[in-house]
Design a protein around this nucleic acid. Structure first.
Length: 360
DNA sequence: AACTCGGGGCC
DNA sequence: GGCCCAGAGTT
């Protein structure tokens, strides 16, 4: 196995030298810059990360500023990227680095993995790219490329398969260019040995030795066990306006979208009468109400099927549960997940522009 | 080992 | 409509 796999090293490095994309985090691969990029890139495509990365690095240029950042501002910088615990964990790790390592990110593969949010992949990426150390960085790209090259039909979602791949990679990794080698594998997976659609084998530096290509089995590999279907949650979303302000609600500190702000909502699809009753139960005095279009938002493991109402109320008293904010302030200050994007225009409209269907 | 956690682009 | 992405933490 090792003898065979060793043949990929030089062609891969040569290809990478000619074809590496210019990416913001490749510019000055300092430990912090690599760290931030790798956290953002977890389960997230390069093109999606780019705009977030630039803005984040300007706002929080080093570990110290990250450690000191207010959580609200931190989440605002991450708004729309998803997997929000990534950035909270990164801040926890930043504080650990300051307290235990004098503010310098460790260079050791195993020590890095002790930090919150840094697993085997991210530890290997930082150690190899930022510190030039021999360590594996096996992500979905690498699992796909290597399993195709070796015609492996093992389930790449199994931990044991990933560990085996990490070991195999370490054994062939060139000691003089570990960072380039890890990035080359990922780059090939992203640009040539692509995850969806036909791989571009004609332009692949490994086409001569790829066993999946030899057998015409590129479409059968990698093998992944089927995942279970998403559950569906029905919700009714309330856009509650008093004319000047919009009601928002901070989600609980644990679970889905924890700590982010949302439009008031409740379980199930409520009729208009039920929605009015719900509003009154919350202590508000509705004046007018209008039913809005339905919307769907898909998460990894859940689907929200939403219906919604636009509701005008009399001047609210602060309940503590709900915050009444100016819509413009919402955009600059409160992180709101993309799940509510379908109703964004109702959050922003000026009172009077919208015709309510019914007076109450 | 199974489940949780976002969002978007591509087929 | 399904797939998967420079994964990691929790149970």
């Amino acid at each position: 196995m090792k003898e065979n796999l060793e043949q990929i090293v030089q062609p891969l490095l040569r290809w990478f030298d000619q074809n590496a994309r210019i990416l913001p985090w490749r510019d000055q691969p300092t430990p912090y810059r690599v760290w931030v990029s790798e956290i953002m890139l977890q389960q997230t495509r390069v093109e999606a990360v780019k705009p977030f990365y630039q803005r984040f690095m300007e706002a929080l240029p080093d570990i110290q500023t990250l450690a000191n950042c207010e959580e609200e501002e931190l989440l605002k910088l991450w708004e729309g990227l998803g997997y929000y615990n990534r950035v909270r964990n990164m801040q926890i790790a930043a504080r650990t680095v300051i307290e235990e390592y004098g503010g310098k990110l460790p260079d050791d593969y195993l020590e890095l993995q002790q930090l919150k949010g840094i697993g085997s992949y991210t530890a290997g990426a930082i150690a190899s790219i930022a510190y030039g150390k021999v360590a594996p960085a096996v992500d979905g790209n690498v699992l796909r490329v290597i399993s195709r090259v070796t015609l492996s039909r093992e389930d790449i979602l199994k931990q044991s398969v990933k560990r085996g791949m990490e070991q195999a990679i370490v054994e062939i990794m060139p000691a003089d260019r570990p960072g380039a080698f890890n990035q080359a594998l990922m780059e090939l997976g992203a640009m040539v040995c692509v995850p969806n659609g036909e791989p571009h084998c004609e332009s692949c530096p490994l086409k001569g030795l790829c066993l999946a290509r030899k057998m015409g089995a590129m479409d059968e590999i990698p093998v992944k066990k089927a995942k279970k279907p998403r559950r569906i949650e029905e919700k009714t979303v309330m856009i509650i306006r008093d004319g000047e302000h919009l009601a928002i609600h901070k989600r609980p500190p644990k679970g889905l979208l924890s700590g982010l702000y949302e439009l008031p909502n409740t379980e199930g699809h409520l009729t208009q009468n039920e929605a009015v009753a719900w509003i009154k139960e919350k202590g508000f005095s509705p004046i007018r109400i209008k039913g809005l279009e339905t919307a769907k938002h898909i998460f990894s493991h859940v689907e929200w099927h939403m219906t919604a109402y636009l509701i005008l109320i009399e001047d609210p008293q602060e309940t503590g549960e709900y915050l009444f904010v100016e819509p413009e302030k919402t955009e600059e200050k409160y992180p709101i997940p993309a799940a509510f994007a379908a109703y964004a225009r109702y959050m922003e409209i000026k009172l009077g522009q919208e015709k309510y269907r019914e007076d109450l």
